[in-house]
Design a protein around this nucleic acid. Structure first.
Length: 492
RNA sequence: GGACAGGUGGCCGAGUGGUUUAAGGCAGCGGUCUUGAAAACCGCCGUGGGUGAAAGCUCACCGUGAGUUCGAAUCUCACCCUGUCCGCCA
């Protein structure tokens, strides 16, 4: 989330940054935001003058009543009689304008860092030569990971489809154990070598956490949700109208939790008998769903760990790592990567999150990328690193490195990690700040996140890079201790 | 899921409609005293916003949101969270 004051101070920088990202009308957006802010401040200024007058008068009324001076009290009461209405109107206006501005700001993506290359899509990403590692293994007629896994009898997509549908998998035997070994190896490396604290976080979270890291409100269709409970809203809290011409149904919520209800209303109704077009609809009720979200990445619970807090600079950087399942709806990916384990509705990942100061964050970003690469180096898997161009970066990122591992079976590099510096963007959404050495609040922290690494794709990479001519798969030496000393995986 | 009790500054804690501008204490910072320290004493000590060149003036915030009132930490309603007991449960 952007700071409106920062936009006001540097409108051109804001417009230039968003234009670099590919936004067509950044100038108009900036003007609209600044205009909304101006209107809000005008309302505030007027309202506060009225509030100050009311406060003074109320104090005097209190004194007068204590002195039994009913005449003076009455005079003062008459004086402020009209003020109450105006103040309430002003407060309502303030709420509305603040909410409007907040909503408008909530969907604006982060500004790319100055050293991010400009471009429209992944073709404009720029390799980081100094971070390239390894050589492609010479494998004769390499197989793809699902061919290898299925031939081993330890990877089963058909049964997963029977039970859960497309984009799920069963791993069995040594492959199931290998997944666990990979995760344990990653966690041990990050905690022991890089000082990350291992965390086992919640994987179901509230709206507010998803808002904090930027998945909501814009990317709801990528998420899965649970239905924790549902509620039928009666006529005291909702009015339902059916348009007799178009048949369109309109719902208006009222009462003290109207705003919450509006937010939780997903367009479902409960009917206790058929209704005809007309004005009164007493037998149709809106259904409110109270739900949790399934995390698409552990970035969400790890980053939100510090939401709403003021941290001491001395305790930064905060480094956390977690091994969790991740759930993604993959809306809009229909037909892409349909075979194999590359794109799943459920996969596991070891995540890295750092909370730092603005001064530290660029260095921390490099360090985090080092930590992620260290895993691939120890596994001796060839890979390259690219700096994402402005058009390919995620919503909350100001700079992102993708790590792409070589997959002989696919004869290509595939993303296995994405390390992003989000700057103060998420911290502002979460309201996480820090106190400097002098004890003064010194603004929003910077947040960073990166995969360290995607466990499923790491397993894919091992299968394809360590495949043997006889159909077995060699186990990388660093994983052998985690596999009970085994050196290879074979059919049985 | 049921019953009850709670939620006040970094922490503890007082406060049931009107000089509350949130008492008091602890911790922290500065000072006096001291050779130095401790003690004692004095002062400072929340966040965000509006306005302003600044000093300052001012508004909001006592779990969250709405409401009653000239005036709300205090009264009303809803929600969230915590604790204890009961029930269920890996």
């Amino acid at each position: 989330m952007h700071d409106i004051k920062a936009i006001a101070k540097d409108r051109d920088g804001f417009v230039k940054g968003l234009t670099r990202r590919g936004l067509a009308d950044a100038g108009a957006l900036a003007d609209s935001l600044l205009e909304q802010d101006k209107v809000l401040r005008d309302v505030l200024t007027r309202l506060q003058i009225q509030q100050a007058r009311r406060n003074d008068a109320s104090k005097l009324i209190g004194q007068a009543k204590q002195n039994k001076d009913e005449v003076l009290a009455k005079t003062l009461l008459d004086e402020v009689a009209g003020l109450k209405d105006e103040i309430q109107k002003g407060e309502a206006q303030q709420r509305e304008l603040e909410e409007g501005l907040r909503q408008a700001l909530a969907v604006v993506p982060n500004i790319p860092a100055a050293d991010v290359p400009e471009g429209a899509d992944e073709r404009a990403n720029v390799p980081v030569a100094s971070r390239a590692f390894g050589t492609h293994p010479g494998i004769n007629a390499p197989k793809q990971h699902f061919e290898i896994g299925e031939a081993l009898g330890q990877m089963d997509f058909e049964r997963a489809a029977k039970v859960s549908g497309a984009r799920f998998v069963y791993l069995k035997g040594d492959l199931a154990k290998l997944e666990r070994a990979i995760a344990a190896f990653m966690l041990d490396t990050h905690t022991e070598k890089f000082g990350y604290t291992e965390v086992s976080p919640p994987v179901l979270v509230r709206d507010q956490a998803m808002f904090g890291t930027g998945q909501l409100p814009k990317f709801e269709e990528d998420l899965f949700s649970t239905k924790a409970s549902e509620e039928f809203i009666g006529p005291e809290e909702a009015t339902v109208r059916l348009d007799s011409m178009t048949g369109a149904v309109a719902v208006e919520f009222k009462g003290s939790r109207a705003a919450d209800l509006q937010k939780s209303f997903k367009g479902r109704f409960f009917l206790n008998r058929p209704v005809a077009a007309g004005s009164t609809l007493n037998n149709i009720f809106p259904v409110i769903e109270n739900s949790f979200w399934l995390i698409p990445t552990a970035e969400v619970p790890l980053t939100n760990y510090v939401s709403g807090e003021i941290l001491n600079e001395a305790e930064l950087p905060l480094r956390m790592t977690a091994y969790t399942p991740c759930f993604r709806a993959e809306a809009g990916s229909a037909g892409r990567d349909t075979r194999g384990m590359i794109r799943m509705h459920q996969f596991s990942k070891v995540e890295l999150v750092s909370i730092t100061t603005p001064e530290q964050s660029p260095a921390e970003h490099e360090r985090m990328t080092d930590a992620a690469q260290e895993i691939l180096k120890k596994l001796d898997l060839a890979h390259r690193v690219v700096t994402l161009c402005t058009g390919d970066m995620g919503f909350g990122a100001q700079k992102t490195y993708d790590i792409e591992v070589w997959l002989p079976g696919q004869n290509t590099y595939r993303e296995i990690s994405s390390c992003s510096n989000c700057g103060p963007f998420q911290a502002r959404r979460m309201n996480t700040r820090f106190r400097n050495a002098e004890g003064k609040v010194a603004g929003a922290v910077h947040t960073l996140n990166g995969s360290g690494l995607a466990v499923g794709r790491t397993l894919v990479a091992i299968l394809e890079n360590y495949q043997q001519a006889d159909g077995s798969v060699a186990i990388p030496s660093v994983l052998q201790p985690y596999m009970g000393g085994k050196t290879q995986i074979s059919k049985f």
